[in-house]
Design a protein around this nucleic acid. Structure first.
Length: 492
RNA sequence: GGCCCCAUCGUCUAGUGGUCUAGGACACCGGCCUCUCACGCCGGGAACAGGGGUUCGAGUCCCCUUGGGGUCACCA
């Protein structure tokens, strides 16, 4: 049995997006599951469109997701010689020929064919040139491209797709495609195959948009006398209008980077991506890394394309609701220590990180995270919605301010009074703080909720949150008293 | 337009001829819980694109129609 070798070959013409990441993930999962290797190959032969930033963006994206590779990154341009050698081999063994037709002539023919509603492939004018004619044109320095000579066979050419099943195409539909440009640079179709042969790729998992390439590439494998890999064409990721997702038309919402920058947990996002077009066949939707690798299989990938259900300008969801839901799930169930590391980055970025959270205040830090994480959606929320736990410069949101504070003028006296009683308390604990608060409400003949909710707003700035008295314990007596006494400022 | 692929709730999906009056999840709507808001729990609405076959029996197999997508470059 030969080694299982997969590859992810992005072209660095834009940042890593949802679709690309999912392709990478499926390749990675398959490699891991079969004790194989994953090779990262940057296909940068399009010099005009490839950029350094894009390469870095792809590398960063994969790194963030935790999709690691065993070999590479390789750069396709470094193997230019291989590509040229193979092209020459194809010319020598009669699998390719020189075509002297100019682009202008071809374009004109194509347009004419289209107008006449006929098939628009190359008419093979140069395929039958005699050696003399070729010599003549070469002597005249007419530029030429190299075209692959599609074998003159009847019937169909096909392969067994691991996802789609048997795929066949008629020989008569096949065009003599260009493999080398007139400037001597080999094209994608060829480079890709040559690289995959050299890298001994055994399985090619890629998007369905490559299906027509596959038929042509199979011919290339044959002409190059190389074993054909297993192909698996995964469904495409579409937007809510069923259009192909692209960075260009959808912007940052489809970029992996966006999810990193918006507080997603990397594994949660992988989990979401895995479920976009694949299911384990049962009701399981949360997987650890090990579980997902174990459960993954090509056969269970859906044939139909999946819609990335992001909602632009939705006040409640800034992306696919399911992605957020999965993120929330991990946020509240993951190991608190691991979460602490992620939240630290957020607090550091906001300049509200205290180094003691790693030392003598570690226990407080961890228990506070455990207390507040239940209501959060992303990592970002710890530094924004949860700011009051870590800093004094939190903002009091307008809605709770109006509803819970300004509506009750009396709070101006009541909360400072409560602060006094908290200060006098022998022991500032859960039971005592609640007892005192309710006692005060009874004395004042008001509903305890007025005191409690007013206090929540004043102490945390938020409309909602954990149980009030748990909050008190987390914030601590000193800071609670200061904030309660500070209520006047809110009426100003 | 040619060729290719696809088709179950709004979205992700389960379903491989009978156990489907179609199951789960998200989202949505009620209710419970409650100091708020979530979580959680309970409940609700919501789909087999249409038409023909095959079969005792079809969401499941076949055909047609319709719809969606992909691809038709000296891009990758």
């Amino acid at each position: 049995m030969t080694e299982t070798r997969l590859r992810f070959p992005p072209s660095p013409t834009g940042y890593l997006h949802i679709g690309g990441a999912r392709t990478a993930l499926y390749n990675w999962l398959y490699a891991k599951k079969n004790n194989g290797k994953l090779i990262l190959r940057i296909e940068d032969t399009d010099a005009d469109r490839s950029t350094k930033e894009s390469i870095q963006g792809i590398l960063d994206g994969l790194d963030w997701l935790g999709i690691d590779y065993d070999e590479g990154p390789f750069f396709q341009t470094d193997f230019h010689d291989d590509h040229v050698t193979s092209a020459q081999k194809l010319l020598d063994n009669g699998s390719a020929y020189k075509c002297f037709c100019t682009k202008e002539v071809l374009d004109a023919k194509r347009e004419a064919a289209q107008a006449a509603k006929q098939q628009r492939g190359y008419d093979r004018t140069c395929r039958h040139l005699s050696p003399e004619e070729i010599a003549e044109k070469e002597a005249a320095n007419i530029p030429y491209v190299l075209r692959f000579k599609v074998p003159e066979r009847t019937g169909t050419l096909g392969y067994d797709d691991k996802i789609l099943g048997r795929i066949e195409s008629n020989y008569s539909e096949l065009d003599d495609f260009v493999i080398v440009r007139s400037n001597g640079k080999p094209l994608y179709l060829l480079c890709n195959v040559v690289d995959d042969i050299r890298d001994r790729i055994s399985h090619i998992i890629r998007g369905q948009d490559h299906m027509t390439n596959t038929i042509k590439q199979i011919l290339l494998y044959e002409a190059l006398d190389a074993p054909q890999p297993v192909f698996a064409h995964m469904p495409l990721t579409l937007d809510t209008k069923k259009a192909k997702i692209s960075k260009r038309s959808h912007g940052e919402i489809v970029a992996i980077q966006f999810y990193r920058d918006n507080g997603f947990i990397p594994w949660a996002f992988n989990n979401f991506l895995a479920l976009l077009g694949w299911s384990a066949g049962n009701d399981q939707e949360f997987f650890t890394k090990e579980e997902l690798i174990e459960a993954f299989s090509l056969e269970r990938i859906n044939k139909s394309s999946a819609i990335f259900n992001y909602r632009k300008n939705d006040p409640k969801f800034f992306t696919d609701p399911k992605a957020i839901y999965i993120n929330e799930h991990y946020l509240r169930t993951m190991d608190i220590g691991a979460l602490a590391v992620m939240v630290k980055r957020e607090l550091v970025a906001e300049n509200i990180w205290d180094p003691r959270y790693d030392e003598d205040k570690k226990e407080w830090y961890l228990s506070t995270l455990a207390l507040i994480r239940d209501r959060f959606h992303t990592l970002k929320d710890f530094a924004s919605l949860g700011r009051a736990y870590f800093a004094e410069d939190f903002t009091v949101e307008p809605k709770p301010l109006k509803k819970n504070v300004l509506k009750f003028e009396g709070l101006k006296e009541w909360l400072p009074e409560l602060a006094n009683r908290y200060e006098a308390l022998e022991s500032f604990n859960l039971e005592e703080t609640e007892r005192v608060a309710r006692e005060l409400a009874t004395e004042l003949e008001i509903k305890p909720g007025i005191i409690i909710n007013g206090m929540r707003t004043v102490v945390t700035g938020q409309l909602a949150g954990p149980s009030m008295f748990d909050i008190l314990m987390a914030i601590g007596r000193e800071r609670v008293i200061l904030r309660l006494r500070n209520i006047d400022n809110l009426f100003a």
